[in-house]
């Protein structure tokens, strides 16, 4: 009997609410195992870069401290990173549908640690996506900018994509469907056009352009290109970023609270 009492006393909760990098590693492995994730987040941006970024009619034209090819490479890296982080966050949708979230609730894993694991997993996948696009750029040889700008823009894209991990979580908690990735693919394509990732906004009509400037990728896209392009800085970019971050985060927190509420 004392043995049992001692056993009870010995039991403890894990540090950091059950968070561990080993779990992040398993989550990344899961994502990389998913063929659709790999094709859409890692391969598609590279293909887009190869299609649009190497066109000799404009690729070598000057763009700030580098050339247009480098500009497009950054856009495609952002596209890939955003897909990766959104997709990573949105996996909560599938996990809820599968009952995995419920299973996790009978483990010591705290909801906050779970979100942290999802965020980090998304960031790792985002980093892979950026690296793949930049590597394609190096191999293709067309993009040109000072060495430090490769690092600076790459990091800006990567860190900025965290905004969309929040978006992914929000959508993941909002849509309880296994088809959430299709919805996300479509929505992100719209956001990418709105943000000017595929077509420069200068080519839009003024009315369409104003509407596009209100979409979530606009501010982020301008910001990650700023180190390369330089020139006039618009405060509307960071404002856009912060506002959308607030919207996505509060949306995610709202849905998350509802989800974990003990009814």
């Amino acid at each position: 009997m004392t043995a049992t009492q001692a056993a009870l006393a010995e039991r403890r909760t894990p540090p950091l609410g059950g968070f561990s990098m080993a779990v992040v590693a398993l989550e990344v492995r899961r994502l990389l195992r998913n063929r659709r994730t790999v094709i859409f987040t890692l391969i598609a941006p590279v293909i887009f870069f190869l299609l649009f970024g190497l066109n000799s009619s404009y690729a070598n034209q000057r763009a700030g401290h580098g050339n247009v090819s480098a500009f497009i490479m950054i856009s495609m890296a952002l596209y890939g990173a955003v897909l990766a982080t959104t997709g990573g966050g949105a996996t909560v949708s599938v996990e809820r549908a599968l009952g995995w979230s419920r299973q996790l609730r009978v483990t010591p894993l705290s909801p906050v640690a779970y979100i942290a694991i999802k965020m980090l997993t998304s960031l790792v996948l985002g980093l892979v996506s950026v690296t793949v696009v930049y590597t394609a750029g190096v191999i293709a040889g067309k993009p040109s900018m000072p060495a430090y700008l490769w690092v600076v823009t790459g990091c800006c894209v990567w860190v900025g994509s965290l905004l969309f991990a929040a978006f992914g979580l929000f959508v993941g908690y909002l849509l309880p469907s296994e088809n959430v990735m299709q919805v996300i693919g479509f929505v992100l394509m719209l956001f990418s056009f709105g943000g000017g990732l595929f077509i420069p906004l200068s080519q839009f009509s003024p009315a369409l352009r104003h509407a596009a400037e209100l979409t979530p990728l606009y501010g982020l896209n301008e910001l990650v290109h700023y180190p390369l392009v330089g020139g006039a800085f618009a405060w509307s970019w960071p404002v856009s970023l912060v506002v959308w971050l607030a919207i996505f985060t509060s949306g995610a927190v709202w849905r998350f609270r509802r989800d974990t509420a003990r009814v």
Binding site: L26, R30, R33, E95, L98, G99, W100, Q103
Partner: peptide
């Protein structure tokens, strides 16, 4: 051991 669900297919 839950009544149903609770497994990830891709592990």
């Amino acid at each position: 051991v839950m009544q149903n669900g609770g497994l990830l297919k891709d592990l």
